[in-house]
Every structure is written in structure tokens, then in C-alpha cells.
């Protein structure tokens, strides 16, 4: 299992990188951490003619809280995000996702943008991007384009990134006060891709009614998905057992998950509901504890 041959490029400026990718187009793959791309190449499931290594491209290492968003540049690794207190504070759902992503050894090399560009439906980060309505910044010789997460993931390992575009940065909106978040998944073993995963973000107003909710599921379809019906079942309600049951039923209704050797479609549908119920019950218990403390 040796890598197939390719031509290696290591640009140092964004213009140079974008020019290269534009010129090479579909024959080139961008290499950042390589944790998704290199296994595919080792298995010879993909044989790009060119690799454009962006590890020395200046300006892609941004990891900052800036103007209402958390910016994560294309060179930023999972481990850097995991270790940044800023992320925990301003984009807690993103921070929540980190320990679920493979193992630290992989997180030390793998990048957030790389995972998004790979678009694996069982990976955590596409769901996080969907749940947070992240913006993805793509550059090409044609200029810069900002793509909303909901328009980015088109199918299994397929995104709306054009062959000449480089995903330079992802921007996560800063969390609104009073929001609770949780990433939860059920996987065969610790560190495996999920059989079912949920990224949940929820805000209660002063009266305890849900005024904002985002539920993004992963490993239940050809892309990560927002559970819009379950969200609708929650929005404007209080977190009672009845509400939770309604949301769970709505979720199971709207999912049409695939089966594989690790879990059947029925399992995924059922356990998606379990994960949602547990997440919401946890939120409800936290809210009760907080209001209890306040009283």
C-alpha cells in the first residue's frame, strides 16, 4: 500500500496557490493535513496527478475571534482548535466536536477546512458547520466566494467547491448568550466514525421557551443534514417530556438513513431519536438546575 505517483507543489502565497489550483483544476488535490486524502491515496481509491501542499501558504493559519465570527484558516489543525480557549468561549459547539474526531494523533495533523472540503457524511465537522450556519470562504483566480454551509455539502464526499477553488477559511458565527450546545454520537468504538451523531445548539428565552434551535445529524445520509422538522417541533416550545417526544418522533420521521456493516437503517433511525432525546433531556436538566440555582 504505497502512494501512487504524483507531482508535488508547495506554494507559499495564496495567489500562487490559487493560480496553481486554477491551472491544474481537476487533476490536483489540495494537501493540508492529509488525514483524509492520504488514506484514500494509500488505498489507491484516488490518484490525483498533482498535490498542492498548502502548509506553507501564508495567511491560512488564522484562528481568531473577529467581528462576530470565529475564523478558522485552512492550515489550522483540529488540535489547535481543541487547545484554543477562544473557541470554547465563542464557538462551544465546535469545541465540543473536537474530542469526537478520531484520535489526538490524527487531530494533530488533520485540519478543520480539510474535513469540511472532504465532506464525509459521517464526520463531525460538516454537521457543526451546518448547525452553526457557518460560512465557507473559497478563493480562485476568479475571486473570492462565500458559501453558506447549507449550500456547501452536495452529496457523498461531494461539495459545491469548484475544481479551481481553494477552501481558505471557515467562519463560525459567535454563539449567542444563553445558548447550550452538545455534540453526541454513538459509534462502534471510541474514535470511530459515528453510527449516528448529533450536533445540537439550543437557546431558551427568559420564559424557558426555545427561541432558537439547530439540530444537525451526521452518519444518517449522504451528507450531514439539518433536522428541520424536529427543529420546528421544538421552536417556541418549552423543554417538556412531551415536547421532547414530539421532536424525537419528528426526527425519526424525517430521516432516511442508510445501512452498512456497522448499523442498519432502522438502528440509525431509532438511535438518532435516542441521541436527540438524551441531548434534550440533558439541556432540560441543565436549565432546571440553572433556574433552581437562580431561585
Amino acid at each position: 500500500m504505497k502512494f501512487p505517483g504524483f507531482v508535488y507543489h508547495r506554494p507559499t502565497s495564496l495567489d500562487e496557490a490559487v493560480e496553481l489550483i486554477g491551472r491544474l483544476g481537476g487533476d490536483a488535490k489540495v494537501l493540508a493535513g492529509g488525514q483524509s486524502l492520504l488514506p484514500v491515496m494509500a488505498l489507491r481509491l484516488g490518484q490525483p496527478e498533482h498535490l498542492v501542499d498548502i502548509s506553507r501558504v501564508s495567511g491560512l493559519d488564522v484562528l481568531a475571534h473577529d467581528d462576530g465570527v470565529v475564523r478558522v484558516g485552512a492550515r489550522v489543525t483540529h488540535a489547535q482548535v481543541e487547545d484554543a480557549p477562544m473557541v470554547r468561549r465563542y464557538a462551544p459547539l465546535l469545541a465540543d466536536a473536537m474530542p469526537w474526531i478520531a484520535h489526538r494523533t490524527v487531530r494533530n495533523r488533520g485540519t478543520v477546512c480539510g474535513s469540511l472540503a472532504h465532506g464525509d457524511p459521517a464526520a463531525e465537522l460538516p454537521a457543526i458547520a451546518l448547525a452553526l450556519d457557518a460560512s465557507l470562504v473559497a478563493r480562485s483566480v476568479r475571486g473570492e466566494r462565500i458559501i453558506a454551509a447549507r449550500d456547501f455539502f452536495e452529496g457523498f464526499l461531494t461539495t459545491s467547491l469548484a475544481p479551481d477553488e481553494l477552501l481558505c477559511e471557515v467562519r463560525f458565527p459567535v454563539v449567542a448568550p444563553g445558548t447550550v450546545t452538545l455534540v453526541s454520537e454513538v459509534s462502534r468504538r471510541h474514535g470511530d466514525y459515528a453510527m449516528v451523531g448529533l450536533a445540537a445548539s439550543l437557546r431558551l428565552d427568559g420564559a424557558g421557551s426555545i427561541d432558537d434551535v439547530a439540530l444537525a445529524l451526521f452518519a444518517v445520509g449522504s451528507t450531514a443534514v439539518r433536522a428541520t422538522k424536529a427543529e420546528d417541533a421544538l421552536r417556541g416550545r418549552t423543554l417538556t417530556p412531551d415536547t421532547i417526544a414530539t421532536a424525537v418522533a419528528a426526527l425519526r420521521e424525517e430521516l432516511d438513513p442508510p445501512g452498512d456493516n456497522h448499523a442498519s437503517p432502522a438502528y440509525r433511525r431509532h438511535v438518532a431519536g435516542v441521541v436527540l432525546a438524551r441531548t434534550l433531556q440533558g439541556f432540560a436538566a441543565d436549565a432546571a438546575a440553572i433556574s433552581g440555582d437562580a431561585a
Partner: peptide, 8 residues
């Protein structure tokens, strides 16, 4: 007996 089979 993977999780799917247990629930079945």
C-alpha cells in the same frame, strides 16, 4: 452481537 443485532 453488534448494537444493531442487540436492538433487533
Amino acid at each position: 452481537l453488534p448494537p444493531t443485532r442487540i436492538l433487533e
